[in-house]
Design a protein around this nucleic acid. Structure first.
Length: 451
RNA sequence: GCGCGGGUGCCCGAGUGGUCUAAGGGAGCGGCCUGCAAAGCCGUGAUUCGCGGGUUCAAAUCCCGCUCCGCGCUCCA
């Protein structure tokens, strides 16, 4: 079974499954008020890779990722743009899925929307009030964190330290009993969207949304709760606090991915606007970002630069060339290499090690082809392909259809070569290059591909 | 200030006590192949892993101190 670093226990431990053979995963999804940036992209890629690997391992994975479609940021944006809030969420969600598709992230099995779960949230808040874990103020309902004995588990800081660190910031709402108490229900102001509740019309707090959706869809003690590093506190801690206050077992294991760094001087200069995920996929090979994410450990920070993206594209060219050369070979994966792959992935998702194995097989297959050993090449190639597929990396094997005029040029060049008129053949090769096509003289004759 | 990560070759980045004379990718250089290229293959590159101490027969890997970067303590993937 896979082992993963658990934020709560601060070490790599095996992922224990509540139900044998089944994995339940909750990923904190986006708040849809702006287009996804590259940080969202990394988050989605990391858990997509985890999910694909678990599926490949034969596990029955239930992968839930929510859409936060009611939130202060959304209302703020609506106000700024003078548009209805739900127009923004619908539009931004569409863009989100578009971005996910471009980076080849599988759709979650379930995508609960916060607005569809308000009844459940009201119910949960009511129960918290019933046991005095939550209290009503003039602007909403708050959770009393002091009822949670181990509050601070995820950030590994005591309640006192958390409060102290906040410094001069106004953590204490006028009516809050403790500075760290957080809002469960916000009473609506004039003109704000609202849902009915016993404490007045309003909307749920962010932390309440996720705890209700995850428990509703995955049940108590689900296996894995994930998200970006920044969600550890307060978001995840506060979700947990609500569940714990009600005596529910919450997530069994917490996984957080590292950040994408983009404030570097080099970066902002060379990348410009590329903080936006869609822009990134337009400027570079859509697979390049996944490869970069795979080559780093998921908890390490990564820096995305024009250089790193270009390097990833060069690596992809190598992989595509490999795929083209081995497309006609039919082999089966080699168990020893697959075991090594599994071992790497099971070790806290060592994707870099897995990619390493894949590239070694690519070289092995290339070498075997060069020496004419098709059988060895087929085995290595099949193994590399299986690894790539598991990691969500696709190869481009079929080159685009060659236009007739390009083919004609290539034919002329071949005729010139046959006639040993190399000056002419080189001229024609330059012409092809100018038209966007590279010609390679392989053992099987010239091969055309877009350059 | 407190907590959590990270600092490895020209670049990106694995490796967490001996098999490290430190993976893999990219870039460079040399070679094989080729009419020449491209692609592919081979070779080459850190006597060293932020800095300073320490533990050990043995450390990139463990401990202590320092330093730099990021994240959290406030909405945030």
């Amino acid at each position: 079974m896979i082992s993963l670093y658990d934020t709560a226990r601060q070490k790599v431990v095996p992922l224990e499954l509540r139900d044998p053979g089944k994995v339940s995963i909750y990923v904190c999804g986006p708040t849809v008020y702006a287009p996804p940036h590259i940080g969202h992209g990394r988050m989605a890629l990391v858990y997509d890779i985890l999910r694909r690997y678990l599926l490949w391992s034969g596990l029955d994975v239930t992968f839930v990722s929510n859409i936060t479609d009611i939130d202060d940021n959304i209302l703020k944006r609506a106000e700024e743009e003078g548009r209805p809030w739900d127009e923004i969420t619908v539009k931004c969600e569409g863009i989100w899925w578009q971005g996910m598709e471009r980076i080849n992230v599988m759709r979650p099995d379930l995508t609960p929307h916060a607005t569809e779960y308000v009844d459940g949230m009201v119910d949960l808040i009511g129960r918290l009030i019933d046991i005095d874990a939550a209290y009503i103020t003039s602007d909403g309902v708050y959770l009393s964190v002091s009822v949670v004995p181990d509050y601070g588990l995820l950030p590994h800081q005591s309640l006192d330290d958390l409060v102290e660190g906040a410094g001069e910031r106004e953590l204490v709402g006028i009516e809050k009993r403790h500075p760290a108490d957080f809002v469960l229900w916000k009473l609506a102001k004039e003109g704000e969207p609202s849902w009915p509740s016993p404490w007045g019309d309003g909307r749920p707090g962010w932390h309440t949304e996720c705890v209700v959706m995850s428990l509703d869809l995955l049940g108590e003690g689900f296996d894995l709760h994930t998200g970006g590093l920044d969600l550890t506190f307060p978001h995840h801690e506060n979700e947990r606090a609500q569940a714990v206050a009600l005596g529910h077992k919450f997530a069994n294991h917490w996984m957080h991915n590292g950040f994408v760094e983009l404030e570097g001087e080099k970066m902002s200069k060379s990348l410009g606007n590329v903080k936006n995920l869609l822009d990134l996929t337009e400027q570079y090979d859509q697979r390049a970002y996944r490869l970069l994410v795979l080559q780093a450990h998921y908890r390490s920070p990564i820096e995305i630069t024009d250089t790193s993206m270009t390097q990833a594209e060069a690596s992809l060219d190598r992989l595509d060339t490999f795929a083209r050369r081995t497309a006609s070979l039919d082999g089966v994966s080699r168990p020893d290499d697959i075991d090594a792959f599994r071992q790497a992935m099971d070790d806290d998702l060592n994707t870099s090690g897995a990619v390493d194995l894949m590239f070694r097989l690519v070289r092995e297959a290339n070498t075997a082809i060069d020496s004419g050993d098709e059988q060895a090449a087929a085995g290595a190639a099949a193994t590399a392909r299986e690894m790539a597929a598991t990691l969500g990396l696709e190869f481009e094997t079929s080159s685009d259809d060659v236009p007739a005029e390009i083919q004609a040029l290539a034919d002329q060049r071949q005729a010139a070569r046959a006639a040993k008129d190399f000056a002419k053949s080189d001229e024609l090769r330059d012409e092809l290059a100018a038209a966007g096509w590279t010609v390679e003289d392989s053992a099987d004759g010239p091969v055309l591909r877009p350059n």
